[in-house]
Protein backbone atom coordinates (compact mmCIF):
# COMPACT_ATOMS: atom_id res chain seq x y z
CA UNK A 1 0.00 0.00 0.00
CA UNK A 2 2.79 2.43 0.79
CA UNK A 3 4.16 1.66 -2.68
CA UNK A 4 0.89 2.93 -4.20
CA UNK A 5 1.09 6.09 -2.10
CA UNK A 6 4.68 6.46 -3.25
CA UNK A 7 3.73 6.19 -6.91
CA UNK A 8 0.89 8.69 -6.45
CA UNK A 9 3.22 11.18 -4.76
CA UNK A 10 5.87 10.66 -7.45
CA UNK A 11 3.22 11.48 -10.07
CA UNK A 12 2.38 14.69 -8.19
CA UNK A 13 6.11 15.44 -8.07
CA UNK A 14 6.39 15.01 -11.83
CA UNK A 15 3.37 17.29 -12.43
CA UNK A 16 4.92 19.93 -10.18
CA UNK A 17 8.24 19.70 -12.00
CA UNK A 18 6.55 20.16 -15.39
CA UNK A 19 4.56 23.11 -14.00
CA UNK A 20 7.78 24.74 -12.72
CA UNK A 21 9.38 24.46 -16.16
CA UNK A 22 6.22 25.65 -17.93
CA UNK A 23 5.64 28.73 -15.78
CA UNK A 24 6.99 32.01 -17.16
CA UNK A 25 6.29 33.91 -13.93
CA UNK A 26 9.30 33.43 -11.68
CA UNK A 27 7.33 34.00 -8.46
CA UNK A 28 5.05 31.11 -9.40
CA UNK A 29 8.11 28.96 -10.04
CA UNK A 30 9.44 29.78 -6.57
CA UNK A 31 6.14 28.80 -4.94
CA UNK A 32 5.90 25.59 -6.96
CA UNK A 33 9.46 24.65 -6.04
CA UNK A 34 8.38 24.98 -2.39
CA UNK A 35 5.67 22.41 -3.14
CA UNK A 36 8.21 20.23 -4.93
CA UNK A 37 10.36 20.16 -1.81
CA UNK A 38 7.40 19.21 0.41
CA UNK A 39 6.37 16.33 -1.88
CA UNK A 40 9.97 15.18 -2.16
CA UNK A 41 10.32 15.05 1.64
CA UNK A 42 7.22 12.84 1.92
CA UNK A 43 8.62 10.56 -0.78
CA UNK A 44 11.94 10.23 1.01
CA UNK A 45 10.07 9.44 4.20
CA UNK A 46 7.99 6.76 2.47
CA UNK A 47 11.25 5.17 1.34
CA UNK A 48 12.33 5.11 5.02
CA UNK A 49 15.10 7.68 4.50
CA UNK A 50 14.26 9.82 7.53
CA UNK A 51 17.62 11.63 7.68
CA UNK A 52 17.42 12.74 4.05
CA UNK A 53 13.78 13.74 4.50
CA UNK A 54 14.68 15.83 7.54
CA UNK A 55 17.39 17.60 5.54
CA UNK A 56 14.89 18.35 2.79
CA UNK A 57 12.41 19.58 5.42
CA UNK A 58 14.90 21.82 7.22
CA UNK A 59 16.24 23.44 4.06
CA UNK A 60 13.18 23.31 1.83
CA UNK A 61 10.47 24.45 4.23
CA UNK A 62 11.64 27.93 5.09
CA UNK A 63 15.10 28.80 3.91
CA UNK A 64 15.01 27.95 0.22
CA UNK A 65 11.79 29.96 -0.26
CA UNK A 66 13.31 32.93 1.57
CA UNK A 67 16.56 32.77 -0.42
CA UNK A 68 14.81 32.31 -3.77
CA UNK A 69 12.47 35.21 -3.03
CA UNK A 70 15.36 37.44 -2.02
CA UNK A 71 17.12 36.49 -5.25
CA UNK A 72 13.89 37.23 -7.12
CA UNK A 73 13.71 40.66 -5.48
CA UNK A 74 16.89 41.74 -7.29
CA UNK A 75 15.94 40.34 -10.67
CA UNK A 76 13.06 40.64 -13.11
CA UNK A 77 9.56 39.28 -12.56
CA UNK A 78 9.35 37.14 -15.67
CA UNK A 79 11.55 34.65 -17.37
CA UNK A 80 13.25 35.87 -20.54
CA UNK A 81 11.90 34.38 -23.72
CA UNK A 82 14.35 31.91 -25.28
CA UNK A 83 16.38 33.68 -27.93
CA UNK A 84 17.37 30.84 -30.23
CA UNK A 85 15.68 27.78 -31.63
CA UNK A 86 15.30 24.87 -29.25
CA UNK A 87 15.51 22.02 -31.76
CA UNK A 88 19.11 21.12 -30.93
CA UNK A 89 18.36 21.07 -27.20
CA UNK A 90 15.30 18.89 -27.78
CA UNK A 91 17.33 16.33 -29.74
CA UNK A 92 19.99 16.17 -27.02
CA UNK A 93 17.33 15.77 -24.31
CA UNK A 94 15.59 12.97 -26.23
CA UNK A 95 18.87 11.13 -26.74
CA UNK A 96 19.79 11.53 -23.06
CA UNK A 97 16.34 10.28 -22.03
CA UNK A 98 16.65 7.19 -24.22
CA UNK A 99 20.10 6.46 -22.79
CA UNK A 100 18.78 6.82 -19.24
CA UNK A 101 15.79 4.57 -19.94
CA UNK A 102 18.18 2.01 -21.44
CA UNK A 103 20.35 2.26 -18.31
CA UNK A 104 17.39 1.54 -16.01
CA UNK A 105 16.92 -1.84 -17.75
CA UNK A 106 20.09 -3.01 -16.06
CA UNK A 107 18.97 -1.86 -12.61
CA UNK A 108 17.86 -4.34 -9.95
CA UNK A 109 14.12 -4.57 -9.25
CA UNK A 110 12.54 -2.14 -6.78
CA UNK A 111 13.15 -3.35 -3.20
CA UNK A 112 15.18 -6.35 -4.40
CA UNK A 113 17.09 -7.73 -1.37
CA UNK A 114 19.80 -9.08 -3.70
CA UNK A 115 20.59 -5.66 -5.15
CA UNK A 116 24.31 -4.86 -5.03
CA UNK A 117 23.70 -1.93 -2.67
CA UNK A 118 22.42 -4.34 -0.02
CA UNK A 119 25.20 -6.86 -0.57
CA UNK A 120 28.38 -4.79 -0.75
CA UNK A 121 29.35 -2.78 2.36
CA UNK A 122 25.90 -2.14 3.89
CA UNK A 123 25.82 -5.38 5.98
CA UNK A 124 29.30 -4.61 7.25
CA UNK A 125 28.19 -1.10 8.34
CA UNK A 126 25.10 -2.51 10.05
CA UNK A 127 27.22 -5.09 11.91
CA UNK A 128 30.08 -2.83 12.86
CA UNK A 129 28.11 0.20 14.07
CA UNK A 130 26.92 -1.42 17.28
CA UNK A 131 30.37 -2.80 17.99
CA UNK A 132 32.64 0.10 17.03
CA UNK A 133 30.56 3.19 17.82
CA UNK A 134 27.56 1.89 19.79
CA UNK A 135 24.92 4.35 18.54
CA UNK A 136 21.48 3.40 17.21
CA UNK A 137 21.43 5.60 14.10
CA UNK A 138 23.59 3.83 11.52
CA UNK A 139 23.21 6.74 9.06
CA UNK A 140 25.05 9.09 11.42
CA UNK A 141 27.73 6.46 12.00
CA UNK A 142 28.26 5.98 8.26
CA UNK A 143 28.27 9.72 7.53
CA UNK A 144 30.42 10.80 10.41
CA UNK A 145 32.82 7.95 11.02
CA UNK A 146 32.97 5.22 8.37
CA UNK A 147 32.79 7.72 5.53
CA UNK A 148 34.12 10.75 7.37
CA UNK A 149 36.17 11.81 4.35
CA UNK A 150 33.03 12.20 2.24
CA UNK A 151 31.31 14.33 4.87
CA UNK A 152 34.46 16.44 5.22
CA UNK A 153 34.27 16.92 1.46
CA UNK A 154 30.59 17.92 1.73
CA UNK A 155 31.37 20.46 4.44
CA UNK A 156 34.00 21.98 2.20
CA UNK A 157 31.53 22.02 -0.69
CA UNK A 158 29.13 24.03 1.53
CA UNK A 159 32.07 26.21 2.61
CA UNK A 160 33.13 26.82 -1.01
CA UNK A 161 29.55 27.54 -2.09
CA UNK A 162 29.22 30.11 0.69
CA UNK A 163 32.52 31.76 -0.25
CA UNK A 164 31.44 31.77 -3.90
CA UNK A 165 28.15 33.53 -3.15
CA UNK A 166 29.97 36.06 -0.96
CA UNK A 167 32.45 36.74 -3.79
CA UNK A 168 29.57 37.39 -6.17
CA UNK A 169 27.40 39.48 -3.87
CA UNK A 170 29.93 40.97 -1.45
CA UNK A 171 30.10 40.67 2.34
CA UNK A 172 29.59 44.35 3.14
CA UNK A 173 26.78 46.63 2.03
CA UNK A 174 28.88 48.67 -0.38
CA UNK A 175 28.25 52.25 -1.55
CA UNK A 176 25.91 50.80 -4.17
CA UNK A 177 23.48 49.54 -1.54
CA UNK A 178 23.32 52.88 0.25
CA UNK A 179 22.47 54.80 -2.88
CA UNK A 180 20.33 52.05 -4.31
CA UNK A 181 17.07 53.67 -5.39
CA UNK A 182 15.29 50.41 -4.68
CA UNK A 183 16.51 50.37 -1.08
CA UNK A 184 13.57 50.14 1.24
CA UNK A 185 12.91 53.38 3.09
CA UNK A 186 11.72 51.59 6.18
CA UNK A 187 14.04 48.68 7.03
CA UNK A 188 12.05 47.66 10.08
CA UNK A 189 10.89 44.25 8.94
CA UNK A 190 7.36 43.22 9.74
CA UNK A 191 7.06 45.35 12.87
CA UNK A 192 3.69 46.78 11.90
CA UNK A 193 2.16 43.32 11.57
CA UNK A 194 1.25 42.50 15.13
CA UNK A 195 0.07 38.90 14.79
CA UNK A 196 2.99 37.55 12.73
CA UNK A 197 5.38 39.42 15.00
CA UNK A 198 3.98 38.10 18.28
CA UNK A 199 3.64 34.49 17.11
CA UNK A 200 6.95 34.53 15.26
CA UNK A 201 8.84 35.86 18.28
CA UNK A 202 7.16 33.26 20.45
CA UNK A 203 8.30 30.43 18.16
CA UNK A 204 11.94 31.49 17.67
CA UNK A 205 13.17 29.94 20.97
CA UNK A 206 11.36 26.70 20.16
CA UNK A 207 12.95 26.52 16.71
CA UNK A 208 16.38 27.10 18.26
CA UNK A 209 15.70 24.45 20.91
CA UNK A 210 14.54 21.98 18.28
CA UNK A 211 17.64 22.76 16.23
CA UNK A 212 19.86 21.93 19.20
CA UNK A 213 17.85 18.75 19.80
CA UNK A 214 18.37 17.68 16.19
CA UNK A 215 22.06 18.55 16.48
CA UNK A 216 22.81 16.53 19.59
CA UNK A 217 20.22 13.79 19.10
CA UNK A 218 21.58 12.89 15.66
CA UNK A 219 23.25 9.76 17.05
CA UNK A 220 19.91 8.42 18.29
CA UNK A 221 17.28 9.66 15.83
CA UNK A 222 17.14 11.30 12.43
CA UNK A 223 19.22 14.44 12.38
CA UNK A 224 22.71 15.81 12.58
CA UNK A 225 24.74 18.85 11.77
CA UNK A 226 23.33 19.71 8.34
CA UNK A 227 19.71 19.65 9.49
CA UNK A 228 20.43 21.45 12.76
CA UNK A 229 22.42 24.15 10.99
CA UNK A 230 19.54 24.80 8.60
CA UNK A 231 17.01 24.93 11.47
CA UNK A 232 19.07 27.37 13.53
CA UNK A 233 19.63 29.54 10.45
CA UNK A 234 15.85 29.43 9.84
CA UNK A 235 15.22 30.74 13.35
CA UNK A 236 17.59 33.66 12.85
CA UNK A 237 16.22 34.40 9.37
CA UNK A 238 12.74 34.48 10.93
CA UNK A 239 14.05 37.02 13.44
CA UNK A 240 15.51 39.05 10.58
CA UNK A 241 12.17 39.00 8.74
CA UNK A 242 10.26 40.10 11.82
CA UNK A 243 12.59 42.70 13.27
CA UNK A 244 14.49 43.90 10.25
CA UNK A 245 17.83 42.78 8.91
CA UNK A 246 19.83 45.24 11.01
CA UNK A 247 18.52 43.80 14.28
CA UNK A 248 19.60 40.34 13.15
CA UNK A 249 23.03 41.72 12.29
CA UNK A 250 23.29 43.11 15.81
CA UNK A 251 22.69 39.60 17.17
CA UNK A 252 25.23 37.94 14.88
CA UNK A 253 27.47 40.47 13.09
CA UNK A 254 28.93 39.76 9.67
CA UNK A 255 32.44 39.25 11.05
CA UNK A 256 31.13 36.52 13.38
CA UNK A 257 29.36 34.85 10.45
CA UNK A 258 32.61 34.71 8.46
CA UNK A 259 34.25 33.22 11.54
CA UNK A 260 31.48 30.61 11.81
CA UNK A 261 31.86 29.58 8.16
CA UNK A 262 35.58 29.02 8.49
CA UNK A 263 35.49 27.82 12.10
CA UNK A 264 33.12 24.91 11.54
CA UNK A 265 35.09 23.51 8.63
CA UNK A 266 38.31 24.07 10.57
CA UNK A 267 36.92 22.26 13.63
CA UNK A 268 36.14 19.22 11.48
CA UNK A 269 39.61 19.25 9.93
CA UNK A 270 41.35 19.72 13.29
CA UNK A 271 39.55 16.70 14.75
CA UNK A 272 40.87 14.72 11.78
CA UNK A 273 44.41 15.99 12.37
CA UNK A 274 44.17 15.07 16.05
CA UNK A 275 43.78 11.48 14.88
CA UNK A 276 47.16 11.74 13.12
CA UNK A 277 48.88 13.40 16.08
CA UNK A 278 47.63 10.74 18.47
CA UNK A 279 49.18 8.06 16.31
CA UNK A 280 46.41 6.85 14.06
CA UNK A 281 44.85 7.80 10.70
CA UNK A 282 43.23 11.03 9.57
CA UNK A 283 39.62 11.20 10.88
CA UNK A 284 40.03 8.13 13.08
CA UNK A 285 38.24 9.15 16.28
CA UNK A 286 39.00 5.98 18.25
CA UNK A 287 42.18 7.48 19.68
CA UNK A 288 40.48 10.62 21.05
CA UNK A 289 39.66 8.82 24.30
CA UNK A 290 41.18 5.88 26.14
CA UNK A 291 38.05 3.87 25.29
CA UNK A 292 37.81 3.57 21.45
CA UNK A 293 33.98 3.52 21.46
CA UNK A 294 33.81 6.64 23.65
CA UNK A 295 36.40 8.24 21.37
CA UNK A 296 34.26 7.52 18.31
CA UNK A 297 31.17 9.04 19.99
CA UNK A 298 33.15 12.11 21.05
CA UNK A 299 34.57 12.55 17.56
CA UNK A 300 31.08 12.29 16.00
CA UNK A 301 29.71 14.88 18.41
CA UNK A 302 32.50 17.34 17.60
CA UNK A 303 32.43 16.93 13.82
CA UNK A 304 28.61 17.23 13.79
CA UNK A 305 29.00 20.48 15.71
CA UNK A 306 31.51 21.63 13.11
CA UNK A 307 29.11 20.78 10.28
CA UNK A 308 26.26 22.59 12.03
CA UNK A 309 28.35 25.73 12.62
CA UNK A 310 29.46 25.92 8.99
CA UNK A 311 25.95 25.36 7.60
CA UNK A 312 24.44 28.01 9.89
CA UNK A 313 27.16 30.48 8.95
CA UNK A 314 26.87 29.87 5.21
CA UNK A 315 23.07 30.10 5.09
CA UNK A 316 22.95 33.27 7.17
CA UNK A 317 25.77 34.87 5.17
CA UNK A 318 23.96 34.16 1.91
CA UNK A 319 20.75 35.63 3.34
CA UNK A 320 22.52 38.79 4.51
CA UNK A 321 24.43 39.06 1.24
CA UNK A 322 21.14 39.09 -0.68
CA UNK A 323 19.58 41.49 1.82
CA UNK A 324 22.51 43.90 1.50
CA UNK A 325 22.11 43.97 -2.27
CA UNK A 326 18.88 45.86 -2.12
CA UNK A 327 15.73 45.11 -0.31
CA UNK A 328 14.38 42.30 1.74
Amino acid sequence: MTVIFGFFLLTLLLITAVAIVQSQNLFVSVMLSGMFSLLLAVNFFLLDAADVALTEAAVGAGISTVLLLSALAITAKHEKAPSSSRVGALIIVIIATLVLIYATLGNPQFADPNAPVHQHVAPWYLDKTAEAIDIPNVVTAVLGSFRGYDTLGEVFVVFTAGIGVLFLLGTQPGPFAQSNPFKLTDPKGLRHYLIPRVVGRMLIPFILLFGLYVQFHGEYGPGGGFQAGALIAAAIILFALLEGENSALKVIPRSVLIGLIAGGALLYGVVGLFGIFLGSNFLDYSVLSSNPVKGQQMGLLIIEAGVGITVTGVLLSIFHAFAARGKF
Binding site: Y193, P196, V199, L203
Partner: peptide, 16 residues
Protein backbone atom coordinates in the same frame (compact mmCIF):
# COMPACT_ATOMS: atom_id res chain seq x y z
CA UNK B 1 0.23 23.33 19.29
CA UNK B 2 2.66 24.61 16.66
CA UNK B 3 0.24 23.90 13.81
CA UNK B 4 -2.54 25.77 15.62
CA UNK B 5 -0.19 28.69 16.23
CA UNK B 6 1.40 28.90 12.79
CA UNK B 7 -1.56 28.06 10.53
CA UNK B 8 -3.74 31.09 11.34
CA UNK B 9 -0.64 33.31 11.52
CA UNK B 10 0.38 32.28 8.03
CA UNK B 11 -3.19 32.90 6.82
CA UNK B 12 -3.10 36.34 8.43
CA UNK B 13 0.24 37.17 6.80
CA UNK B 14 -1.06 35.96 3.44
CA UNK B 15 -4.25 38.02 3.73
CA UNK B 16 -2.14 41.07 4.66
Amino acid sequence: VFLLLTGPTASNALAS
